[in-house]
């Protein structure tokens, strides 16, 4: 029997608590300071945070720092433990709370500090940019590539960081049939092919309406482009 916990969001003003020292992992934000800027999700959304806590704990123990394999190892659990609507997941405040308050150690374990701006994005990205906040990114990619409880494609995608980079940093990544088609078709390709094919695909979408494509259409389009690029 698992227990559901209330989910929270970090309000916009709370972002000022996130300074360089925190991003580097050299300072913590006191709980009482955070409490002032954290509020329950207005939708009343809940999640199974106990399970997620232990998954994150396991990842921190099992994987060395910056190992990209931890994405694939955690994505399914993030998605299952946060069984929320896309609308709820569209609230940046939720992901800011999760990254800043709940799992800052994971964010720092996964992402090396290269610059303040880059690290801020890992903590305070989110919203319409799928490829930003460290945990938001896992949830959305799992959301767009899973099929019910089947996370096969999610695992394939995370096994190939070129796909993660080239597909999910683009606008068409918000349209699930296209995501499924292109990720599936590109799964075994070389990174050079993935790079060029996603660029061509994106360019072709200026001629056809993305949302009018079925998964089959998107698959045909991808195949056509891949053949040309190889």
């Amino acid at each position: 029997m698992t227990e559901e916990n209330q989910l929270y969001r970090l309000v916009e003003d709370g972002q000022r608590l996130v300074g360089e020292e925190f991003l580097k992992g050299e300072a913590k934000i006191p709980d009482e300071a955070l409490d002032e800027y954290v509020e329950p999700m207005p939708s009343g959304a809940t999640g199974n945070l106990q399970t997620l806590d232990s998954s994150v704990e396991r990842i921190l123990n099992e994987y060395s720092e910056t190992d990209t394999a931890m994405d694939g190892a955690l994505a399914e659990d993030v998605h299952q433990c946060l069984d929320i609507t896309r609308r709820t997941a569209g609230d940046p405040g939720l992901w800011h709370w999760i990254a800043v308050d709940r799992y800052p150690d994971f964010v720092r374990h996964r992402w090396e500090y290269r610059s303040e701006a880059a690290m801020r994005e890992k903590f305070l990205g989110a919203g319409s940019d799928l490829y930003s906040n460290a945990i938001h990114r896992l949830w959305w990619i799992a959301e767009l590539t899973s099929d019910g409880d089947d996370y096969t494609l999610t695992e394939q995608v995370f096994a190939n960081q070129t796909i993660v980079n080239k597909v999910f940093d683009r606008w068409f990544a918000r349209y699930q049939p296209a995501v499924v088609a292109i990720c599936d078709e590109l799964a075994d390709e070389r990174s050079g092919v993935i790079d060029e094919a996603t660029r061509r695909f994106n360019h072709a979408l200026t001629n056809v309406q993305l949302e009018a494509l079925s998964e089959e259409d998107a698959r045909n389009l991808t195949r056509r482009v891949i053949q040309d690029v190889r």
Binding site: A197, R200, F201, N202, H203, A204, N207, V208, R224, D228
Partner: peptide, 10 residues
């Protein structure tokens, strides 16, 4: 070029 080739577009 075919409009769906990804070579011609905006």
């Amino acid at each position: 070029e075919d409009m769906l080739s990804g070579k011609v577009g905006e």
